[in-house]
Design a protein around this nucleic acid. Structure first.
Length: 845
RNA sequence: GGGCGAGUGGCGGAAUUGGUAGACGCGUUGGUCUUAGGAACCAAUAGUGCAAACUGUGAAGGUUCAAAUCCUUUCUCGCCUACCA
């Protein structure tokens, strides 16, 4: 018997799909659409296992949906702007464009080898001017709508590279490449006014039923809505400043206030910046590590000013004003009032500076709390943040905290014009300026007075200059005078040399896929109306916040003053797949070894430390090259393996034995196919309902698991299917029944192993593209069922009997059954619990 | 510190609504065939026990005729987040 030649078969079908454009989609309003999108890759050079997993999941879904009759849009493109291209180009002394295009061509070939059902006619690349031209138009459109603005803001500045670093490029406060301490520098930057839509972006989450709760929670926390009020704290007579504004969620604890703290960047710092002791304090603050943990655990330190703030609820009382390291300038108003009794952080601060600690909320239940000898509630080591009754607070006394007391306090503050109710968001505006070459140019110029002017639409795109020197300090574009200086309508201007954050590129690419060739518009309204929203978006959890939030913002921004668009949520379904992991190897010198090097070292008898499975990464050398694996085992086998071992939302561990067994399984399937063909020649009149029942039941199962993304279970179903058929083929079966069920079997597994099933189907002179098999409901409706018989809650036997029989009939059956009747000898039945067609639990004495 | 999630055989993991725990695969063991096997096929495989049976889903309680699934307490691990006023 021939072995299954996957190389030949897969090559053949990939060529067939390519030639016939089998997955080309066009707008067809007579059909229901399904837009399946996987996060598009960054063209880093080669695809990795993460891509294989991501795109296999999407491909199985796309193929399944087409079989159901949906008009499926399944496109692919390239997130092709970004730093790695610039760095690689610098190293190899070539143009980022050439480097990027080479990678795209390699990766495209690799993706095709996976047998993905992609409409390649819709391929886009964000670094092409055909793409970024429209992005520049969006930018100007947003500018016109007032959703883009320019402001000075702090950036991470690398003094060696003379460039801005992204947060993730700052490691322990040092530049990831230069290794020198990163400075905070104020620069003029472009911002998208994402915070304008805080409320919409938050409430929109509730409608996203098919998003993982985890992602929704992460976004919710990121947006960070809090209810409270702003309060003006008047200062005791002072020449420079009259009041300080604070935001608080607990105005009802005002009577317990013992200090006011402001950020070192607070506007009032200008009155102190010349003082040596203040400078020293600022230095002290900057000394604390920049790792997140260090910041959180840093000691709370303050700098006492000569100012005193008046308690707005009792103007006879004043408290000192401090600069404090724990107050953030970019949240609220950069100032807080401290109530040590009811906030742990304030308590730590008060203890350090010996400030008064007076409780104003008393817990309702006294157990576990401290009281002085007069039985007054006191705060000792820990602040009390729970609910309770207001005390020591004049007109607020005895109110229920926090509900009643907050309402009453705000009422009072508003009546007396001291403060007002306020909702505060943590979400900050999105800074999109990058001092980089390889990104979308910002279509703005400045005149000699530094006034902003938009590039006229007809002059778009603003193209990146080519063949420039990338090895300059700072932004390379800043050094290209011929590009930077421009004359418009006879007037001289200087271009904006910053480029856009690459997250902008990916915030609307799913719109572009709807009409990728439209030269006039970024997207065609009719196409977008048909295709959007994306029905199923699939990608890594690492984009849970930024990319997904930015894309959601873009829909809000396009929608703003443009009701016709009417799309507020880009992705109605979201699935986040887990990572592909592999164990790590280190030799005695502590160097990482690749799996191949490990095998080699092992054969030489070296001692190798095997580490626990970790996400595949180049630095740990625990990567597996998908191309080699496909070469060795075939795409179908790889698809089976990548889906089989774990639920798709969880991490999966790469295993060579697992991969091998998937490969063997494809061989077994081929053997089964040969066995089937031999069998079909023989005829038998033997009626075999069992095979039809099993097949139909299995198809229902696979369908259920497909819909629920239980792809690992589908692989198990596939094995069961095989085991069953393989066994059945040992017997004679009615030709028609056998063929009918075998076709259903091949169809149901075709989304998973499309090359194999296409080959088998055509081998049987059938269409390689089958519809999703119809299930014969009558067949699934079995006449007989298996009952579990429990005695006092323990399983004692199973019994097969007619479906839908009554409890009485079943008991009669059990009493009469040869194997079951002895259970009841000398026993009295007290009670029965009967679950129809499933189980009976008989309680006996 | 906060948030979320998960704990099931030697391993990865099944178990739609509380209703036969361990599907399916890997591994292991035994066997068949083979010059050979890292091939193929057959069989066994949660634990204890000859067996009947008993025990078993991190731990301890609880609800229920019935709990991996629901409730309470607790432990462990993973991920995210970080002084958010």
């Amino acid at each position: 018997m021939d072995r299954y030649n996957f190389k030949l078969v897969e090559k053949k079908w990939q060529a067939y799909w390519n030639k016939n454009k089998s997955f080309k989609t066009t707008l067809d309003k007579s059909k229901k659409k399904f837009y399946c999108l996987e996060m598009f890759p960054y063209p880093s050079g080669k695809i990795h296992m993460g891509h294989v997993r991501n795109y296999t999941i999407g491909d199985v879904l796309s193929r399944y949906k087409s079989m159901l009759g949906f008009n499926v849009l399944h496109p692919m493109g390239w997130d092709s702007f970004g730093l790695p291209a610039e760095n690689a180009a610098k190293q190899n002394n070539l143009d980022p464009k050439i480097w990027t295009e080479k990678n795209i061509s390699i990766m495209k070939t690799q993706l095709k080898k996976l047998g993905l059902s992609i409409d390649w006619d819709r391929e886009i690349s964000t670094c092409s001017k055909e793409y970024y031209k429209h992005q520049q138009k969006f930018f100007l459109d947003l500018y016109d709508k007032g959703l883009v603005y320019r402001k000075e803001s702090y950036v991470n500045w690398d003094p060696i590279e003379k460039s801005v670093l992204a947060n993730e490029q700052v490691i322990d406060g040092k530049g990831w490449r230069s290794g020198v301490t990163v400075e905070r520098k104020k620069l003029n930057q472009w911002f998208f006014n994402i915070s304008k839509f805080s409320e919409e972006l938050l409430s929109g989450l509730d409608k996203l039923d098919s998003w993982p709760n985890k992602v929704k929670t992460m976004q919710k926390n990121w947006i960070g809505k809090s209810f409270g009020c702003e309060i003006d704290f008047n200062l005791k007579k002072n020449d420079q400043v009259n009041s300080i504004k604070c935001f608080t969620t607990r105005p009802d604890t005002l009577f317990g206030m013992s200090f006011l703290a402001v950020s070192i960047d607070h506007p009032i710092s200008k009155f102190y910046k010349e003082r040596d002791d203040f400078k020293k304090f600022k230095e002290e603050c900057s000394k604390t590590g920049t790792t997140e943990e260090a910041i959180a655990q840093a000691e709370k330190i303050g700098f006492k000013t000569d100012l005193r703030a008046i308690n707005p609820l009792d103007n006879t009382k004043t408290v000192p004003v401090y600069f404090a390291n724990f107050v953030l300038m970019d949240y609220g108003f950069g100032a807080v009032f401290g109530c040590p009794a009811h906030d742990q952080r304030d308590l730590d601060f008060a203890n350090k500076y010996k400030l008064k600690i007076m409780p104003v909320v008393e817990p309702l239940d006294s157990t576990g709390h401290e009281y002085d000898k007069n039985k007054n509630f006191v705060i000792i080591g820990q602040a009390y943040t729970g609910p309770g009754k207001i005390i020591n607070s004049n007109f607020l006394n005895d109110l229920k905290a926090p509900e009643e007391s907050i309402v009453k306090t705000i009422e009072y503050l508003e009546k007396n014009n001291i403060g007002k109710k306020k909702i505060n968001f943590r979400l900050k505006d999105w800074g999109v300026s990058r001092q980089r070459y390889w990104g979308c140019p910002i279509p703005i110029v400045y005149d000699e007075n530094n006034n902003v002017k938009k590039i006229p639409l007809e002059n778009l795109p603003v193209e990146l200059p080519e063949n420039i020197n990338l090895s300059t300090n700072g932004n390379p574009l800043d050094h290209v005078d011929s590009w930077k200086n421009i004359t418009i309508e006879g007037k001289k201007y200087k271009r904006e040399t910053d480029t856009l954050d690459t997250f902008v590129d990916s915030s609307w690419y799913f719109l572009r896929f709807c009409s990728p060739k439209n030269e006039v518009e970024g997207f065609d309204m009719e196409e977008v109306k048909y295709w959007m929203p994306v029905d199923q978006y699939i990608g890594g959890i690492e984009h849970a916040i930024l990319h997904l939030l930015y894309s959601r913002f873009f829909m809000q921004a396009i929608n703003f003053n443009h009701e016709e668009f009417n799309i507020t949520e880009p992705f109605s379904g979201l699935f986040t797949q887990g990572m592909v992991c592999h164990e790590t190897y280190r030799n005695q010198q502590g160097n990482w070894l690749s799996p191949e090097e490990y095998e080699l070292a092992k054969s030489r008898g070296e001692i190798i430390k095997i580490g626990s499975p970790e996400s595949m990464s180049k630095s740990k050398k625990n990567t597996i090259d998908p191309e080699k694996i496909i070469e060795n085992y075939g795409a179908d086998a790889v698809r089976i393996f990548i889906l089989s071992d774990s639920p798709p939302e969880k991490d999966v561990q790469w295993s060579e034995t697992g991969m091998l067994s998937s490969y063997k399984f494809t061989q077994k399937l081929w053997t089964l196919h040969q066995k089937f063909k031999n069998k079909i020649e023989e005829n038998s009149d033997k009626k075999d309902e069992e095979i039809s029942i099993f097949t139909n039941q299995m198809i229902e199962k696979i369908k259920y698991n497909l819909e629920k993304f239980h792809y690992n279970v589908i692989i198990a179903n596939l094995y069961e299917f095989y085991n069953f058929f393989n066994n059945k083929l040992n017997f004679n079966i009615n030709k028609k029944t056998l063929l009918e069920n075998y076709i259903k079997f091949l169809s149901a597994i075709s989304p998973i192993i499309p090359h194999f099933t296409s080959e088998c189907l055509t081998d049987l002179k059938l269409n390689p593209f089958q519809k999703w098999p119809e299930v014969d409901k009558n067949l699934i409706k079995n006449d007989t069922v298996k009952y579990v018989i429990q005695i006092n809650g323990k399983k004692r036997a199973t019994i097969t009997c007619m479906k839908d029989i009554s409890e009485k009939e079943l008991i009669k059956e059990i009493m009469g059954g040869e194997s079951t009747k002895k259970i009841f000898e000398n026993k009295k039945i007290n009670k029965c619990f009967f679950v129809k067609n499933r189980l009976i639990n008989i309680l006996v004495q």
